[in-house]
């Protein structure tokens, strides 16, 4: 009893053709919609005018070191992608992970050429997990990676 008789080869080839066609169709669709699949724009993209001007959008990057200024519930900070930066103003409660030097995503719109007015601030996690105090071996391990 052979695993690949003519019947099986025909069915296998049919399956392969369907798989290839499906992958190609998916690939083309994802390429076409790639822009819409972006959850946020980087500050340099915003500066280049690639972000939508008329409706709300999201901008993501790092909170610039030393840029956070709190005034009651209103907070000013700058989002940077280390190439360009955009100042942001937000009124409300910040997520616990919000911190200078860490990832952040702000949702809102540009108000004026150089100010982003945010309605929502989301913290982005950097995918690093480590205890607060590490032994020297652990520090060495984390630095190596």
């Amino acid at each position: 009893m052979s695993l690949l008789t003519r019947k099986h080869k025909r069915r296998g080839a049919f399956l392969a053709v369907i798989l290839i066609a499906l992958s190609a169709a998916t690939f083309l669709m994802l390429r076409a919609f790639s822009e819409n699949l972006l959850f946020y724009f980087l500050p340099s993209q915003v500066k280049e005018g690639k972000a939508p001007a008329r409706h709300d959008f999201r901008m993501g990057g790092l909170v610039l070191q030393g840029s956070v200024k709190k005034d009651g519930l209103t907070v000013h900070f700058t989002v940077t992608d280390l190439h360009d930066s955009v100042p942001v103003v937000y009124t409300g409660i910040l997520p616990d992970l919000f911190h200078e030097g860490r990832g952040v995503i702000v949702e809102g719109r540009m108000s004026g050429p150089d100010l982003f007015k945010a309605d929502q601030v989301l913290a982005k996690h950097d995918a690093k997990y480590q205890p607060p105090e590490m032994t020297p071996e652990m520090k060495k391990y984390m630095q190596a990676h």
């Binding site: 699949l37 946020y40 724009f41 993501g60 995918a127 997990y129 652990m138």
Partner: peptide, 22 residues
Amino acid sequence: WWTTLHQGDSIFRKGGPSIAPS
């Protein structure tokens, strides 16, 4: 492939996992 709120992979990434061994 895209910018997401979800973080990247912590384990199967270049240079090994970014999670402390413990």
